[in-house]
Design a protein around this nucleic acid. Structure first.
Lengths: 333, 333
DNA sequence: GTTGGCTGTGCAAACGGTTGCGCAAATTCA
DNA sequence: TGAATTTGCGCAACCGTTTGCACAGCCAAC
């Protein structure tokens, strides 16, 4: 209904100038006490809200941060956002959230849209289908700081925050071996993700350390769709020697895979054991949850990423690329 | 690094004026074909991105929509956001997401921040602790359209989208009765939420219809924290005649409550049955899931809310308050 | 009494676009 | 061929702020 009051109106009402109003509101030392009070009082009375668009135009700052990640519906990411948001909120920033749905094109479009919007910075967890990083280079050429988290790309000059997946995988496999299992499969994610590499690295390292045999048939890569998980699980179970344990890319893969196992008559935590990444809260509701989980602390990752980004925005001069590794933790049930 | 190219630079380079560049880029009919091509070519070459802040300042439009809801980590809400986002994305809007964490103060602050940001509109699912609606009135007085969804407030002149909870609750209870149960408890949400009222209404209506007795001890209100759910579940189980079935406020309440039941030796789907709202996908992974769920279609709610909001923004003249009720569906497992 | 330093305020440019209007050249019409 | 219309473009104001600079009045100091 009523349009927002502006400085101009305050100035007119007070018979002064816009610049004086502006300075009064900012507590500028050169404005008289009396005038300051009159301005502030009227501003309050009129319910004056500074127009942040105009401020942005002037100051080239938005206090908006873009967040691009695959799916909000994955608890890992919604927890990460919560961590990010807590820091942003505290520092007066707002979050523009976009889901890429693991789709490269959509990710690219979102980035373009965020550039156009003029965000002060961006936090990204890259889509699994992203094979090309030119859109990130575009951000760099626009001078917009980026921080990658979880699904990072290390070859770019931007900071990243991620879990020590390889160590997590290593510990998980070692744990399974300590429980007497040797036939351990890896239901890994797509090879485009560094996180998949790291899981593989840790997996192999643990097997080697304990002189367990590495069976290429036990290593599968899924595209993170339910269908593919189902398919690959069947492949594993159809082997002459089905695995005794499965290290899954994350809990969603584990859950889908476990379901197939049950359907095919394999008793979870008896005939076949699961370990997965990112310990979702709802796993605790399962009667037969994965025997262990590598907790990755998404909330902390988000916090860390946001802090780094804000520092990069507010003190661009002292920017140095950082690689923060969040220690993961094997949670045994 | 390099600062973004502006129209001014394009104009200078081409020896023309800013207004011509502006119009050329907008395909204004009064600009010659030749000039249009030259401008567009150079814009492309320079990687020109229009500064949306400047456009916003001029047009008083932001293409930003604020979304305020309790928790992103609840799947109901992340699905709703996905629905909202799909519509926004399609229409060229962006989502500014804020979590209120069910906290009134935080909700209020977020709204203020969004007003200041100058969002074109807001979609809200109100915090359970919100007892006062002045912050929404403030939005109204600023002329910023609001659409409420799920946790709506009907006494305001704004449109809302919500599920037909009462009918859902009614059908759920009727189903339990049809299965031969009469001792049915209601683990309801906080009474500040309309949704709680509606569940109660449906619950009572169904019991009355079937001449079942209404036992005040079977009706509990939880504040949606895990602790409170646990406490109230114990209270129910401690009754001389514990309920045979529980209608839970939503799946999270159901899950927490079921866990306590199991711990206390009540077999789910045998000694005690559960029905809850909003059929979360992960319930399908449970070995003993709730016997039925009232699916509320959050994605569709989100879509609908976003559509209404965009219409209100783009055609303020034809605005009429709408109350859209999304039919829920009892899903029996 | 000139010089100089404060104090308090206003002018005007700038941020990067959009758009009403005016004007010249080219085209059409009678 | 002259008038009317269309085509193509630029001027300048404007959106709501911020901020460098100028300036007037006042007071202290030499």
């Amino acid at each position: 209904m009523s349009t927002n009051p502006t400085m101009k109106e305050i100035a007119k009402e007070l018979g002064t100038s816009v610049s004086t109003v502006s300075r009064a509101l900012q507590n500028h030392p050169r404005i008289g006490l009396r005038m300051k009070e009159r301005v502030k009082e009227l501003a309050l009375k009129l319910n004056y809200v500074p127009n942040s668009t105009a401020i942005h135009l002037k100051k080239k700052r938005n206090y908006n941060i873009g967040i691009v990640l695959p799916y909000l519906t994955e608890q890992f990411f919604s927890l990460a956002i919560t961590g990010i948001e807590d820091i942003l909120f505290e520092k007066g920033y707002r979050a523009l959230v976009v889901q890429s749905r693991n789709d490269y094109e959509r990710e690219k479009q979102s980035i373009t849209s965020l550039i156009q919007h003029g965000v002060d910075g961006i936090i990204v967890s890259v889509a699994s289908e992203t094979y090309n990083y030119s859109h990130f280079n575009e951000l760099n050429s626009h001078g917009i700081p980026i921080v990658f988290f979880d699904r990072v790309v290390k070859i770019l000059p931007n900071s990243c925050v991620y879990g020590d997946i390889a160590i997590g995988a290593f510990e998980a496999v070692e744990y399974l071996i300590s429980q007497g299992m040797t036939k351990i499969a890896l239901l890994n994610g797509p090879s485009t993700l560094i996180a998949s590499d790291e899981r593989l690295t840790g997996y192999i390292k643990a097997l080697k350390k304990h002189d367990a045999q590495i069976n290429i048939n036990y290593i599968k890569s899924v595209d993170l769709s339910k269908e593919d998980t189902i398919r690959k699980t069947h492949e594993l179970l159809n082997l002459e020697e089905p695995p005794q344990a499965v290290l899954a890319f994350h809990d969603y893969v584990a859950l889908d895979s476990m379901q197939i196992c049950r359907e095919r008559g394999f008793a979870i935590n008896k005939d076949i054991f699961f370990v997965s990444f990112s310990n979702l809260s709802f796993c605790s509701y399962l009667e037969q949850p994965p025997i262990a989980s590598v907790e990755q602390f998404p909330y902390e990752m988000g916090e860390k990423a946001a802090k780094i980004l804000i520092k990069a925005i507010e003190h661009p001069a002292d920017y140095i690329r950082q690689e923060i590794i969040i220690k993961s933790k094997l949670v045994i049930r």
